[in-house]
């Protein structure tokens, strides 16, 4: 019952297998083309989008599993995430997750949409570039040169939170860039350990961070004019 298929070579049996019709090279092809994002290419503007860094603030149900839902989404869809912070809000049932991501616009658009699809996610907002952003870092350094350490700490509005003959631990608060700069400066003393919280952020003034972003974020706009949609975000 078996072993009848001796002709192991491709197309071993006699006749040509396949369907009839003009071969590929005899078929006309349309002129147009699409780019990586599936956008029809206007020969003038073949926009290849550069990634940008932005802050996305989400309000979520304070329940088990939400954090893994959110972080799982990022790994599963290969979104680039720089930091994620989570903490309670004024409402015991809700937590805020603040995400710093770096993606081209279509990726940022997808992140927001995919986050909104998670059932425990209540609201998602990409913060404007003027939003307040703060991060806290603890930097443990060698304390061989206490006077210089104190000067640098002062320069970055830092606070010494612990010190012993060998080490000093400094707390720095501020924008990501400020902390980067402080750490770079502290390097001269020899850094033993660092812990950073990642960015926390709130919208400015009377705006609610959980409210849908004030600027038009209708799918229509976002889809048709991704380039016009977002001002480049620079940290404060």
């Amino acid at each position: 019952m078996s072993g009848e298929n001796e002709q192991d070579e491709p197309n071993g049996s006699g006749y040509r297998r396949g369907l009839d019709g003009p071969a590929p090279e005899e078929r006309p092809t349309p002129d147009g083309r699409r780019n990586e994002q599936g956008i029809r290419i206007d020969p003038e503007v073949e926009a290849k989008q550069a990634p940008r860094r932005t802050v996305i603030s989400t309000l979520v149900e304070h329940e088990p599993g939400v954090l893994s839902d959110v972080s799982g989404l990022f790994s599963r869809r290969q979104f680039n995430i720089e930091s994620l912070t989570v903490g309670p809000t004024t409402d015991d049932d809700r937590a805020r997750i603040t995400l710093v991501v770096e993606e081209p616009d279509p990726g940022i658009d997808q992140i927001k949409k995919q986050l909104r699809k998670l059932i425990p996610v209540i609201s998602v907002r990409e913060l404007e570039s003027d939003a307040m952003r703060r991060e806290l870092a603890l930097v443990k350094i060698d304390a061989d040169r206490p006077a210089e350490v104190a000067a640098v700490t002062d320069m970055y509005d830092g606070k010494t939170v612990d010190s012993c003959p060998e080490t000093a631990t400094i707390e720095i608060t501020g924008s990501r860039q400020k902390i980067d700069a402080a750490i770079e400066t502290f390097e001269q003393f020899g850094i033993r350990e660092i812990d950073r919280t990642g960015t926390t952020a709130l919208a400015r003034g009377t705006q609610s961070t959980a409210a849908p972003a004030s600027t038009t974020e209708s799918t229509a706009e976002a889809a048709s004019h991704p380039q016009n949609q977002y001002a480049p975000a620079d940290d404060d």
Partner: peptide, 19 residues
């Protein structure tokens, strides 16, 4: 090479499928 000349009208209940 997908529908290179076409303008696409996309109807979907899931906004995340758009674009």
């Amino acid at each position: 090479t997908f529908a290179p000349d076409a303008e696409i009208i996309h109807i979907d209940i899931d906004p995340a499928e758009i674009s």
